[in-house]
Design a protein around this nucleic acid. Structure first.
Ligand code: MN
Ligand code: MN
Ligand code: ZN
Ligand code: ZN
Lengths: 125, 125
DNA sequence: GTATTATTGCAATAAAATCGCAATAAACAT
DNA sequence: ATGTTTATTGCGATTTTATTGCAATAATAC
């Protein structure tokens, strides 16, 4: 499936690129200048995830949040699986540069992680 | 708010006590012998969470899963924040006896964690 | 320009969880 | 045992989040 460039795709991608935080569908829709249909936003986001451009975080509120997958200049510093922080005060989710470290029992194979720490962020404390 | 004992409460609690896995609302409803209303099950579960008897895990599927809070005989061994494992093959979630370890930037205060590792469990691999 | 088909808009649908309210029943006092 | 209080339940409606079917649109290649 060859991807095509569209205004919608550009707009959503730019939002994510310029955001310091992970964005919910709702936040994206509100921040968009141009009017884009709900379903389209979801589809664009899911395509980004499929293509590995963006990763999805599911928070305790059951909502999906999206953030750009940052590639460091030094590939060794690329943090694949990292913690996320959800601030109850300002109601945001951000990617922490903190790797998720764990050990699992024998025979268990981990393919993905979804780790969210909840509390109060530096800005709000 | 003083709690009352009811057949519903007993039934749901026994299910959770005897389950090796965390249970979704759906799973609980199906496994119950007696017929209990959807909303009631949710309310019972939320009360358990408020009372610290049960903890809630939200998975990437956006659904809530519930598991008994196990108190070890040795209080030092009580694992407050632990990882959870979600098996894509048998579609279950279980509590791992693996503590969530992390460090957060200055000024960040963590109150809760919701950490789920996804992959294939030992039974299915 | 024309053809192909990825993408979009729209409305309908699905799925999970909560809420308002009247009816019920658990706990307690008499 | 009987009555009172109010926590709990059942029911339906509602909210919220996300997906889907389908026809219309538009990006890309020829
Ligand atoms: Mn992230
Ligand atoms: Mn657990
Ligand atoms: Zn904050
Ligand atoms: Zn399994």
């Amino acid at each position: 499936m060859i991807r095509r460039n569209t205004p919608t795709k550009e707009a959503v991608l730019n939002l994510l690129l310029n955001s310091r935080k992970a964005l919910s569908h709702d936040a994206i829709e509100k921040q968009l200048n141009i009017e884009i249909n709900r379903a389209t936003i979801y589809r664009v986001l899911n395509r980004f995830c499929e293509d590995g451009i963006v990763h999805k975080i599911v928070a305790e509120d059951g909502k999906q949040y999206f953030a750009i997958c940052k590639k460091c200049e030094n590939p060794q510093e690329v943090i694949q699986h990292h913690f996320h922080f959800r601030c109850l005060s300002c109601d945001t989710i951000e990617c922490l540069q903190v790797p998720v470290e764990y050990s699992v029992p024998n025979g268990y194979e981990v393919q993905n992680t979804n780790c969210v720490l909840t509390g109060v962020c530096n800005d709000c404390s």
